[in-house]
């Protein structure tokens, strides 16, 4: 299953939000993937998601497969929608 969400962080997906995202994705057993445009990456790989070059207002798709796929997607979509709980 998958869900789409708009990326809000002012500076795009840089080191700090990427770290938070990977940490959250890592809590779930499911395989989680993030897609941005043509490219996608394992959400648990920091270098992978940073390499997607996600910018502000980019539309990203979060996909997951496995036992807790739904929980994972909801958690990560919330995280992105709330700008990673970061105040920047």
């Amino acid at each position: 299953m998958e869900k789409s969400v708009t990326f809000l962080n002012e500076n795009g997906l840089h080191a700090r939000p990427a770290a938070v995202l990977v940490k959250h994705a890592g809590q779930f057993k499911a395989d989680v993937e993030i897609q941005c445009g043509e490219r996608s990456s394992n959400a648990k790989s920091l270098m992978g998601i940073m390499a997607l070059g996600i910018n502000k207002n980019d539309e990203i798709i979060i996909k997951a497969q496995g036992d807790d796929a739904e929980a994972a997607i909801n958690n990560l979509v919330d995280l992105v929608a709330n700008n990673f709980n970061l105040s920047e």
Partner: peptide
């Protein structure tokens, strides 16, 4: 070079044996 942030302030490198290193 596996990742170069659009602003060039961070770069990601991957070795032949798979190690990934971020220089920020």
């Amino acid at each position: 070079v596996v990742q170069l942030f659009r602003t060039n302030h961070a770069i990601g490198l991957k070795s032949e044996n798979g190690l990934e290193v971020l220089i920020h």
